[in-house]
């Protein structure tokens, strides 16, 4: 059955070792179950066969649940064979780069709030500027600001002026 299986990776969370495949299996199981439940409760079709809109989603949900069992079973089998040598490679720890990711997501949320309200050029300057600071550190704020302003203006000219793609404008300044 198996395709080439990579060396199994593990999460280390507070010193506990958890196999990635096992966690994946659990996430898959939860996703599949939730989806199936919502799918079963979809409204009936007003005309034609009433259950038609549900057939495909419900089958997908069940397929997902089956796949999660298969994945967990595969993992258990390996565990039973005591093949623990593979358990070496730690790949995932909550550390600095996760913080950077969270900050990026927050920055993006601010961006989407400002995008229409403040207009493209200004909101993009802020977004890309902050992201550059995040990558390069606060000391390089001058070059970051310069790159951010060049980027937002250049894209504005390319998209809005040359390609005619609609972008929101800043109130009063009208760029």
């Amino acid at each position: 059955m198996p395709g080439p299986e990579q060396a199994r990776q593990i999460f280390i969370i507070r010193g506990e070792k958890l196999s990635v495949s096992l966690i994946t299996g659990l996430i898959t199981f939860i996703t599949g179950t939730t989806y199936t439940l919502i799918a079963m409760n979809l409204p009936a079709a007003p005309l034609g066969r009433a259950n038609e809109p549900k057939i495909f989603p419900v089958s997908l949900g069940i397929l997902m649940i089956i796949l999660s069992f298969l994945l967990i079973a595969q993992e258990m089998k390996k565990r039973a064979s005591k093949d623990n040598t593979e358990y070496e490679k730690a790949v995932f720890k909550i550390d600095n780069h996760i913080k950077s990711i969270i900050l990026t997501v927050l920055n993006a949320a601010i961006y989407s709030f400002l995008f229409v309200r403040a207009g493209y050029v200004i909101s993009t300057f802020i977004f890309v500027g902050l992201e550059l600071l995040l990558f390069s550190g606060i000391k390089k704020w001058k070059s970051s600001a310069l790159i951010a302003i060049i980027f937002s203006l250049a894209i504005y000219i390319l998209f809005y002026k040359l390609l005619g793609v609609y972008l929101p404008m800043t109130p009063y300044i009208w760029i």
């Binding site: 900050l103 927050l106 920055n107 601010i110 400002l114 802020i126 902050l130 600071l133 995040l134 606060i138």
Partner: peptide, 11 residues
Amino acid sequence: RRIVTLIAAVF
């Protein structure tokens, strides 16, 4: 922390 403060200020 300084970056976060900056984000908040600009925002």
